[in-house]
């Protein structure tokens, strides 16, 4: 399998006033197409920074990052927006749905920015909502949906552009155990269908569902192995 995502010596330094903080200190990571990777680490480990760089929401200070054959290490904000739109699908811990829009229009949003015409947009959004089992709820607003349903809407939104990579940041962090099971089952289906997923989590039982787990500590990936021992 070819590498969908490859990082070499990625560093990220934040300059907060006079103090420079090294959030990432040389990360090497490769994710193959079709893989399902969980990234684990305590708070302050650089987990969020890594997620931002993988998600093209931020650029590395040094090092090389290729996503789907494109070097995104030193792109402009405009080009990064384009990469996020075409190659990435985000699932956030707090769903990040727009409350004034219906589920359908929330899912249509990435297609709006891709310039897809309204007819095709609607068709694809309906398909994605059907895919996550919300065909009956397309005209509901987020406030009228349960947490689990809202997260399924955001999974539909991540799927609708047919991205190369689905990036989930603590996707079950705000969900009860039933909804958590629900969403993880949905991820299992997606990976079975050949989707590539990278998931940030601090819950071992969630990370267990991934094919591979990566640990980050103090800005470095410490191991790249199946689950190890008890959590802190």
């Amino acid at each position: 399998m070819s590498a969908l995502l490859s990082m070499e010596g990625v560093r990220k330094t934040y300059n907060t006033g006079s103090i420079a903080v090294d959030a990432l200190r040389g990360v090497n990571l490769t994710v193959d197409a079709g893989d399902y990777v969980a990234i684990m680490g305590p708070s302050g480990s650089g987990k969020s920074t890594l997620m931002h760089i993988i998600g093209c929401l931020d650029v590395p200070t040094a090092g090389r990052y290729e996503l789907d054959g494109v070097d995104v290490s030193s792109m402009t904000e405009k080009d990064l927006a384009d990469v996020r739109n075409r190659k990435l699908g985000f699932v956030f811990q707090s769903f990040n749905l727009l409350h004034s829009l219906t589920a359908l229009r929330n899912v249509e949003l990435p297609l709006v920015y891709a310039g897809v015409n309204p007819g095709e947009r609607r068709e694809r959004a309906l398909l994605a909502l059907d895919r996550v089992g919300l065909a009956e709820r397309v005209n509901h607003r987020p406030g009228e949906l349960s947490g689990g349903q809202q997260q399924r809407v955001s999974v539909a939104r991540a799927l609708v552009t047919d991205p190369a990579l689905i990036l989930a940041d603590e996707p079950t962090g705000n969900l009860d155990s039933v909804s958590t099971r629900d969403i993880l089952a949905l991820f299992d289906e997606l990976t079975a269908a050949g989707r590539t997923i990278v998931m940030i989590t601090h819950e071992h039982d969630v990370a267990e569902r991934a094919k591979r787990t990566v640990h980050i500590y103090d800005g470095l990936l410490t191991d790249d192995a199946p689950l190890a021992g008890a959590s802190r």
Binding site: L57, E77, Y113
Partner: peptide, 12 residues
């Protein structure tokens, strides 16, 4: 932020 994550460019 969300709109940007979903692909909205600064000019949009």
């Amino acid at each position: 932020g969300l709109r940007k994550a979903l692909g909205a460019t600064p000019s949009v």
